[in-house]
């Protein structure tokens, strides 16, 4: 029972981090109909920068979020305008291939700068745990999960309470309609992409403490995040949160009861099961527009 409870709590905590990362991905998909395959590479990049900051000046990885979020936001904005914007009218397949290319390129750059060896960020609380009764909760996981929830909550506030948030949601539902009421869909898309990348930055800083990483880790991350948004319903923010919590718990349960070597397989299993049973995901709904372009 303790074992189960421990896996459940840790799963939910890690699920909070996944939720933050997946929100950016699903937001970008919802607004631009772009599957950002480079999302994993963005978060690994953020993890490496966090590592460098921690190594150089001893900056706490969770404090690094404050530095990383604006930097990644700017990076995302520039990248959108330089690469995705010119092809925004091309068939959707083009953006998948483009972001895939970006992911490979970033992986190469990270390999050149930081080398292809495993890195991890270990602040002094890394090896410590909270002990509640028989439960052992590593401090890194608890702090990481809580910070992720705070960042995610602020993202939600931006999306629900600000003009930008309304513009983003309007563009997601109906880009032409949004343009008619004065929303510049292109700049909204650029800002959305930037927000998505910024959230990957914040999530990457947290993830750097939780998992060791190397440039090639981004594949595993993107597979995980794609599994989450497929499960939750592509483009749905609440869906991404539910999917992330499910995946976090399922991974921890797999580690506890089946074997750690199979944990990476959980998101792939998610993809297969969801596509077979409910292709639109948990919270995805089919709308009129999905079927008839009329």
């Amino acid at each position: 029972m303790t074992e189960f409870l421990q896996a459940l709590i840790l799963g939910l905590l890690i699920g909070g981090v996944y939720a933050l990362l997946a929100s950016g991905l699903t937001l970008i998909f919802g607004v631009m109909n772009v599957i950002n395959i480079a999302h994993g590479a963005f978060l690994i990049l953020a993890a490496f920068i966090t590592w460098s900051l921690w190594r150089a000046i001893g900056l706490d990885p969770l404090a690094a979020i404050f530095a990383l979020t604006p930097v990644m936001f700017a990076f995302g904005w520039l990248l959108y305008n330089a690469t995705i914007r010119p092809i925004r009218r091309a068939p959707p397949a083009a953006s998948v291939l483009l972001t895939f290319g970006l992911a490979l390129f970033l992986e190469g750059i990270m390999g050149v700068i930081w080398g292809n060896t495993s890195h991890s960020v270990r602040p002094e609380y890394f090896a410590q745990s909270f002990e509640i009764g028989e439960l052992f909760l590593p401090k890194a996981q608890v702090y990481g999960g809580l910070v992720a929830i705070v960042v995610l909550a602020s993202l939600y506030l931006v999306l629900t309470r600000s003009w930008l948030g309304r513009a983003i949601r309007a563009s997601a539902v109906n880009p032409q309609g949004a343009e008619l009421v004065g929303v510049n869909a292109v700049s909204v898309a650029a800002l959305t992409f930037a927000i998505g990348v910024a959230s990957a930055g914040a999530g990457g800083a947290i993830a750097s403490v939780l998992y060791p990483f190397l440039p090639g880790s981004h594949y595993q991350w993107i597979a995980r995040l794609l599994g989450i948004i497929v499960l939750g319903g592509m483009g749905s923010l609440p869906g991404a949160v539910i999917g992330a919590l499910c995946l976090g718990v399922a991974e921890l349960m797999t580690v506890t009861y089946i074997g750690p070597e199979w944990a990476t397989g959980v998101p792939y299993a998610f993809v297969f099961i969801v596509l077979l049973l409910r292709p639109q995901g948990i919270l995805g709904t089919r709308l009129r527009q999905d079927v008839a372009t009329a």
């Binding site: 010119p86 092809i87 290319g101 750059i109 292809n116």
Partner: peptide, 19 residues
């Protein structure tokens, strides 16, 4: 890494300029 840079960069360039 050179292979990643070449392939990744080429993929981006082909999608953008030689679709």
């Amino acid at each position: 890494n050179a292979r990643l840079l070449i392939f990744g960069g080429l993929l981006v360039l082909v999608v953008m300029f030689l679709p």
